[in-house]
């Protein structure tokens, strides 16, 4: 009887937690605040990757996503560990990378002016294949406001 009571209590606890309001994690909120002017939040990515092993492929986070033509998107990262690098591919080519090897420079945030509606692959890795943890924010940028704030 005691065992049944315990099971009932556990089930009750699990059931009740399903209805507890689940707030947005504060680190996501903080990163949204860093997304800059004219940005309208669309989604966030939590990326945690292990270190790459020599001779093996760099661990990567991948998400297929529809991007719309004539829309300006911004991607910003808040790194807790390592430095996140984003690459955007269409079905055959790399469109964007936040790392410029010729200047050894990492850009954060980066913007992508999409001209063709369709599925794209968002690929995120960490600098030099190191282990890393980051929050990524994808925003829609109002082009007119972006121009105004750039003046």
């Amino acid at each position: 009887m005691k065992a049944i009571n315990k099971i009932l209590l556990i089930l009750l606890f699990i059931g009740s937690t399903a209805f507890i309001q689940q707030d947005t994690p504060p680190d996501v909120l903080a990163c949204v605040e860093e997304s800059g002017p004219a940005a309208v939040y669309l989604r966030d990515f939590r990326v945690e990757l292990p270190a790459a092993k020599p001779g093996e492929k760099t661990p990567m986070f991948r998400k297929a996503m529809v991007l719309r033509g004539n829309n300006l998107y911004r991607f910003n990262f808040c790194n807790a560990k390592g430095e996140a690098v984003i690459r955007i591919y269409d079905s055959s080519n790399m469109m964007l990378t936040s790392y410029d090897p010729s200047k050894s420079k990492y850009y954060n945030p980066v913007q992508f002016l999409c001209r063709k509606t369709g599925p794209y692959n968002i690929v995120i890795t960490f600098k030099d294949g190191e282990a890393g943890e980051a929050i990524g924010i994808m925003s829609h940028v109002k082009i007119s406001e972006s121009r105004r704030s750039a003046r």
């Binding site: 955007i88 945030p109 980066v110 001209r115 063709k116 509606t117």
Partner: peptide, 19 residues
């Protein structure tokens, strides 16, 4: 080919493949 420009230190890539 996508065009890359840097505005106020922010990298912006403009997709040239238009529809």
């Amino acid at each position: 080919e996508p065009e890359t420009v840097e505005v106020d230190g922010m990298l912006m890539v403009i997709q040239a493949e238009s529809s």
